[in-house]
């Protein structure tokens, strides 16, 4: 793992180049069909959901979706779901339960949207309902925090049997800016707040809030493992090739920021992890699955 301050990790988690839910879905699963709508109000672009296939197994996948461009972000509302997004997620989860599909959620949101219409349509009720119903789903639920895990808006997709985090993802009660402004009346002390709040993957692992943490900078860590001569040579050639073709990107390469272009090793590792999760939970009864999830949150 890289040695970064909590605030640096917050900035990584929010980074515009960071892979989004859709990137992980296409990087991990063999097939994916997106399904839309909450059947009550509208389709929320801040949440994508559908049915995916992984190694022949059907799963329901739901993710909070940020955009990269301004146009995308208008569609995705910067990854801040409205109530209809949570209701769509719940509809898909209940359907997964009906047909016995395990559920995988990708969490990446600054928080549930704080707008007038969101309040009118019951933002609090929608989140509460998800927590309530998710607590008793008879199929296994896995939630992976891939970027920002903002408060109730993140928890609404994270009442899971296991919660995993990427190295530079965060999970918090509210933004460090909000925390600093409420408790110290000074939003500019966000960097300080980030340290105090225990929001990094390492901190949350220590607090037993997450089961697994995935290193993001896999390439470098792997190169530290002894390679065969052939591999070393291939790696050297690849580096040479890269330095020829991607001179502009070299700085970024060196700082090892996770992007869509260098995420495949991580996606492979997540895929292997998900398959292992599915294998373990395949052997459990619905009662066991529900009870274990209940006890996971009961202990907090």
């Amino acid at each position: 793992m890289e040695d970064l301050t909590a605030w640096e990790r917050v900035k990584r988690a929010r980074g515009g180049e960071r892979p989004t839910s859709i990137d992980y879905i296409s990087g991990i699963f063999d097939r994916f069909m997106e399904l839309h709508g909450d059947r009550a109000c509208r389709d929320d672009g801040a949440i994508v959901g559908g049915i995916a296939q992984i190694d022949g197994i059907m799963v329901t996948v739901i993710g909070e979706q940020k955009g990269r461009t301004m146009k995308q972000n208008l569609k995705r509302n910067f990854g801040m779901p409205n109530p209809e997004g949570y209701r769509k997620a719940l509809r898909l989860m209940k359907q997964a339960e009906k047909f016995g599909r395990p559920i995988v959620c990708f969490v990446d949101t600054p928080g549930a949207f704080c707008g007038m219409e969101a309040e009118e349509r019951g933002q609090g009720e929608a989140i509460a309902r998800n927590l309530y119903e998710m607590s008793a789903l008879k199929v296994p639920v896995l939630s992976i925090l891939i970027g920002e895990g903002g408060s109730g808006g993140a928890l609404a997709l994270a009442v899971a049997n296991e919660v995993w985090m990427l190295e530079n993802a965060t999970y918090s009660i509210l933004s460090p800016e909000g925390f600093a402004s409420i408790l110290w009346k000074d939003g500019k002390r966000a960097d300080e707040a980030a340290e105090v709040m225990k929001i990094t993957a390492g901190d949350l692992k220590n607090l037993c809030m997450v089961e697994r943490v995935f290193a993001e900078n896999i390439e470098r860590e792997e190169s530290e493992i002894s390679l065969t001569d052939e591999e070393t040579e291939a790696a050297a050639q690849l580096e040479e090739y890269k330095s020829d073709t991607e001179q502009e990107n070299t700085e970024q390469e060196r700082s090892s920021v996770l992007t869509r272009d260098n995420m495949q090793l991580l996606a492979d590792e997540l895929r292997a992890g998900i398959l292992e999760f599915l294998r373990i939970y395949h052997g459990k009864t619905p009662t066991q699955i529900v009870e274990e999830r209940y006890q996971r949150f009961r202990k907090f």
């Binding site: 989140i127 509460a128 927590l131 607590s135 408060s151 109730g152 928890l155 009442v159 999970y171 918090s172 009660i173 709040m197 225990k198 929001i199 949350l204 607090l207 809030m209 949150f297 907090f300």
Partner: peptide
């Protein structure tokens, strides 16, 4: 985060 977990 411990407060957040009370919701669930």
């Amino acid at each position: 985060i411990v407060s957040l977990m009370q919701m669930a």
